[in-house]
Structures are given as structure tokens and as C-alpha cells.
Simulated assay, not measured.
Amino acid sequence: MKPIDWRIGRHAGAIAVALLWGVVGGEGRAANFVVTVEGADAIYLAGRTDLTVPDPSAPWTGPGDYLVRHGGPTPEEAKESFPSVISVVAGDVVRVLDPTIGGINFFNGFGPPYFGPSGNTAAGSNLTALGGLSGYAGPQGPLTGVFLDDAIPVSGPPSALDFSPGGLGQDFLSLSPEIGQVFFIGDGVTSGGVFQEFTAPTGATRLFLGIPDGFGFNGPPGAYDDNDGSYRVVIGVNQTPSIPEPLAITLALSVAVWSLADQAGRRRRAS
């Protein structure tokens, strides 16, 4: 029997709500997680324990693996944060168990507008690689993931996946990304209400959840310092969703309530 592993996130936003371990690998082990992904949770900081995030408005320093920032203060003064992490093994099948809700504003000034977990527009983002993490092409600012092994991803990034309509799009049923390959999750379901599957590759030990961002959503990753809002996602490892499909009306209402509550809370904190 594999012992329980509680290394599920960097903060209280990642909570294990159910955990059952069996034999190692595949469908023999299962876990559920509730994760809150903030607007400043940079997917390009996944696994980068070698980097220190400077205070807002201070310059990044280091060997070159850093996120670009605005030249001056932003209303949010958001500090880039390391993305939440969930332990996995090769062959694990990851699914969203309840369609992701919430909204993030990627522009100067507290929202609205907030953009949902599938991002803004069907395309428009084309970010370059950073360290050992691939570039990203597809919708602007959606919920994304990346599988890593135990190493710090500092070199040799894989090729970028394209989630624009001319590439994989958002309606794929299953995906088997490589180590270090940033991939689209969005709300976790196709337009027809089918829950999507993401399979951990050989060598994978960790799954990170975060946001891809950059100036104009193109070029070097960065521009997180004016983001606010969050996404909330229920992740299942080797779990099958049991809720009715599709949930278009319920999901729309959930997004609206989540966005309003998050906006009110952030304005209170900013005042």
C-alpha cells in the first residue's frame, strides 16, 4: 500500500477533500482536490524552486529565467505566485470532476470584466518557452496545467501545443502531454458537456495548475502584476465525474456568483 501523500499545494487554496490509495499506478489509486488558482499564479513558475519572486515593482534578477513586469506600479500590485501542485505518477488520468468556475481580469484596474476558466477568445495567445517549460498557444489566460518530474525545469523545453481552432482547439477528448508541456484545461469539459482526460506521462511526479500570461498574451511570459480574480477547480486523479452533463445553465450561474464574490472580497482587501 502506498502511504497517503498530502503534498497537494503551496497554500490553503489547495485542499484534499477525499483521498484513497491502493496499488501504485493507474486506476488503483485515486484522489480528489479542490484548488483555487489566483490570477497571479504563474504556470511558468512551476517547479522553479531556484527562483525568488521579488516584491511588486522591483526588478527580477537572476540567470534570465524570469517573468516580465510592467515598468511601473499597477493598481493591483500583484506579486507573481508559484502555482499549486498535486502529486501524480505516470499513467494517472486527471479529470475535472465539476466544471471549473470563476473569473480573472488580466488588465490594469480591478475587474470587471472577468474572463472565465476557458480564457478570453478562442485564440490570441502565443507565449514563448521559459526554462524547461514549453510555450503556449491558444485562448488568452485560461486555466492550464503542466506535468513535471522531480527535477527543476531549467532547460530543454518541449515543443508548444496549439489550442487555437486551427490546432487542437478546446474540444479534444483526451490529451497526453509531455513533461514540461503546458496544456489547456479551461473548464474541463467539451462544448458538448463531455469531461476531458489528461494522462500523466512517463516520469511525471507532479501536476501544476496556473495561468499563462504575457504582454498582449504574446512573447515572453509575464504581465501577471495587474491580474486579479481566481478560478476554482475540483481535480480528480483516477476519478470519474458523477454529475449530470451538460451543466451549461448551472455553470453560468456559478461563474457569475464566484466572480461577484471574488470582486467584492478583493475590493475590501484593497481599501
Results as ranks from 00 to 15, higher is better:
residue 154 V to N: 10
residue 195 F to L: 05
residue 144 T to R: 00
residue 38 E to D: 10
residue 165 P to M: 04
residue 81 S to G: 09
residue 233 V to M: 12
residue 52 T to Q: 13
residue 254 S to K: 15
residue 249 I to M: 10
residue 4 I to E: 12
residue 187 D to Q: 07
residue 67 L to C: 03
residue 162 D to Y: 01
residue 270 A to W: 12
residue 102 G to E: 01
residue 171 D to I: 14
residue 252 A to M: 11
residue 22 G to T: 10
residue 103 G to L: 07
residue 100 T to S: 12
residue 164 S to V: 10
residue 80 E to F: 03
residue 103 G to D: 02
residue 47 G to A: 05
residue 175 L to S: 04
residue 118 S to C: 09
residue 125 S to V: 00
residue 214 G to H: 00
residue 139 P to Q: 03
residue 47 G to H: 02
residue 248 A to Q: 13
residue 58 A to N: 09
residue 147 F to G: 02
residue 93 V to R: 07
residue 185 I to N: 11
residue 210 G to F: 01
residue 235 I to M: 13
residue 50 D to S: 03
residue 34 V to W: 15
residue 233 V to Y: 04
residue 41 D to P: 10
residue 197 E to F: 04
residue 7 R to I: 13
residue 241 P to N: 03
residue 201 P to M: 06
residue 254 S to L: 06
residue 216 G to D: 08
residue 132 G to C: 07
residue 47 G to E: 01
residue 209 L to S: 02
residue 255 V to W: 15
residue 264 A to W: 07
residue 100 T to K: 11
residue 26 G to I: 07
residue 140 Q to M: 07
residue 22 G to K: 03
residue 160 A to T: 06
residue 10 R to N: 15
residue 130 L to H: 01
residue 24 V to M: 14
residue 176 S to L: 12
residue 172 F to W: 14
residue 17 V to H: 14
residue 240 T to W: 06
residue 127 L to Q: 02
residue 243 I to H: 07
residue 149 D to Q: 10
residue 92 D to P: 11
residue 213 D to L: 07
residue 145 G to E: 11
residue 225 D to P: 14
residue 22 G to W: 03
residue 22 G to L: 02
residue 101 I to H: 08
residue 83 P to L: 01
residue 91 G to W: 08
residue 218 N to A: 09
residue 104 I to K: 10
residue 47 G to K: 01
residue 197 E to W: 03
residue 265 G to W: 14
residue 198 F to S: 04
residue 19 L to K: 13
residue 93 V to M: 02
residue 226 D to G: 15
residue 258 W to V: 01
residue 36 T to F: 05
residue 213 D to W: 06
residue 113 P to A: 07
residue 1 M to I: 09
residue 119 G to R: 02
residue 158 P to L: 01
residue 226 D to E: 14
residue 14 A to L: 04
residue 225 D to E: 06
residue 261 A to D: 12
residue 42 A to H: 01
residue 170 Q to N: 10
residue 102 G to S: 13
residue 112 P to M: 05
residue 245 E to D: 12
residue 75 P to R: 05
residue 176 S to I: 14
residue 185 I to S: 06
residue 148 L to V: 01
residue 187 D to I: 05
residue 203 G to T: 03
residue 9 G to T: 03
residue 206 R to F: 06
residue 124 G to N: 06
residue 153 P to A: 00
residue 110 F to E: 09
residue 145 G to N: 01
residue 250 T to N: 14
residue 204 A to R: 04
residue 219 G to W: 04
residue 271 S to W: 13
residue 219 G to V: 00
residue 171 D to Y: 14
residue 246 P to F: 08
residue 202 T to A: 08
residue 207 L to N: 04
residue 187 D to A: 08
residue 74 T to I: 12
residue 192 G to D: 07
residue 211 I to M: 01
residue 10 R to D: 10
residue 7 R to V: 11
residue 41 D to F: 01
residue 244 P to V: 00
residue 71 G to R: 11
residue 246 P to R: 05
residue 117 P to Y: 05
residue 15 I to M: 08
residue 19 L to Y: 12
residue 155 S to V: 13
residue 227 N to I: 06
residue 62 G to N: 11
residue 16 A to D: 09
residue 106 F to M: 06
residue 81 S to P: 15
residue 30 A to Q: 13
residue 67 L to V: 00
residue 25 G to V: 02
